[in-house]
Each structure stands twice: as structure tokens, then as C-alpha cells.
Simulated scan of single mutants.
Amino acid sequence: MLKLYYAASSCALATHIVLEEVGADYSTQRIEFAKEQQKSPEFLKINPKGRVPALVTDRGILTETPAMLVYVAQSFPAAGLAPMADAFAFARMQSFNSYLCSHLHVAHAHRMRGHRWVDADDAHSIAAMRRKVPETVGGAFEMIERDMLEGPWVMGDTYTICDPYLFTLAQWMEKDGVDLARVPRVVDHRHRMSERLAVKKAIAEETA
């Protein structure tokens, strides 16, 4: 059985949704950031990075959302959540998810985790990073809107592991100061995702 370590309102939701989509036999373990459980010796044995998500498999532990999404998709090929037989399409899917991981999520993190880049007592720099978030995150979503979201799903007509990942990060747009009027297709995608049963089930568990 798979075991997903997650925290509420984190990027772990993407993997949680995909586990539901494929009908996997899995369990979950919630990590409370407010209690700094991610820094506990017990969790650091699971993920020395001290972050979520982490996915325990029968072959070992996986971290990093793009890798976990691909692992689940490849483990349950009948669900059709990744274009396994098309090398170019698979690479395009990976390109999109890599952008979310390496750029969009990092830009978002500047709003509340500036201490990762400057000293925690450097209030001026931390405040400057926070002020920049609406521009950097908004710009990333605008590029997705304009150049990357093919519609109705990220890759076009086929629902893939890109969609839960985009949905998860799009949950944070309002708090990041993104002007939703500039990204109507992203907003529409978020709404359609919210109607899926797997999404409802994953969110219900994480917010219980």
C-alpha cells in the first residue's frame, strides 16, 4: 500500500488527487506545519528535506511532486493520466509540471517563506519579496493562460497529471494577489477541476 505524507493547503494535494483518480490503495499521514512536525526526527527519516509531500512505496520513498505524479501515472497506466506511448507528448507534460515546480511554486513561496533566501531578521528584504509576489506569480499564471493551457485541460482534450497540479497551485491565486480577471481560462479550469469526484474527496480529507 502507498502512504502519502501531506500538509493541508500544500502542493501535496496534487498527488492526493491523482491517487484518488487512479483508484489506488493508499493511506495518508497529515503533517502539521504549525507544530513543526516536518522538522521532527520521525519525519526527517521519511524526508530529510523536511517538506511535504512524501510518498512511501514498496520500493522506497519518493519526494518532489513531478516525480510522484509520474510514478502514480505509470503505476496505474489504465487510468490514462500520462501519454506513455508518445515520447514528445510525455516530455511536454513534464515540461509543464517542471515549470510549476521550479518557477511558479518558488515565486509563491516568496510570500511566506522569504527566510529561505535571506536572513530571517532581514525584514526589508522579506517585505520586498512579499511585495513582488503578485507580479511574479501573476505573470506566471498569465503565461500559462496565454501559452500553455490548451483547454479544456492543460494538454488539450485529455485529462492528465498536469491538471491536478495546476489546480493545486491555482488554489493560492487570491492570497498571492493574482488578478483573476487576467486569467479567466485558469479560473475556469479551477472550477471544472473542483467538480471532479476525486478532487472533492481529496479536499474533504485534507480539510476534515
Rank of each mutant, 00 (worst) to 15 (best):
L2D: 06
L4W: 06
L4A: 10
A7Q: 13
A8M: 10
H16N: 10
I17N: 00
A24T: 06
Y26S: 05
T28Q: 12
T28Y: 08
R30Y: 02
I31G: 11
E32H: 08
A34E: 15
Q37C: 07
Q38I: 07
S40E: 04
P41I: 06
P41R: 08
E42T: 09
N47L: 06
G50R: 08
R51W: 02
V52D: 04
L55H: 06
V56T: 09
D58R: 13
G60A: 10
I61D: 08
I61G: 08
T63A: 11
P66L: 03
A67L: 11
M68F: 03
L69M: 03
V72M: 00
Q74A: 12
A78H: 05
A85C: 03
D86V: 09
D86E: 12
F90R: 13
A91S: 14
R92P: 00
L100H: 04
L100K: 03
H103N: 13
L104C: 05
L104E: 11
H105N: 11
V106H: 05
R116A: 07
V118E: 03
D119Q: 13
D121S: 14
D121T: 11
A123N: 12
H124A: 15
S125K: 14
I126P: 02
A127Q: 14
A127S: 15
A127C: 07
A127R: 11
M129Q: 14
P134M: 08
V137E: 05
E142K: 14
E142Y: 09
I144Y: 05
E145S: 10
E145Y: 09
R146D: 11
M148F: 13
E150R: 13
E150G: 00
W153T: 01
W153P: 03
W153V: 01
G156F: 05
G156I: 06
C162V: 03
C162A: 15
T168N: 06
E174G: 05
K175N: 14
D176H: 05
D179K: 04
D179V: 02
D179G: 04
V183L: 10
R185Y: 07
D188M: 07
R190W: 02
H191K: 15
M193G: 00
S194T: 02
R196S: 00
L197A: 04
A198Y: 00
V199L: 00
I203S: 01
A204L: 03
T207R: 15
T207Y: 12
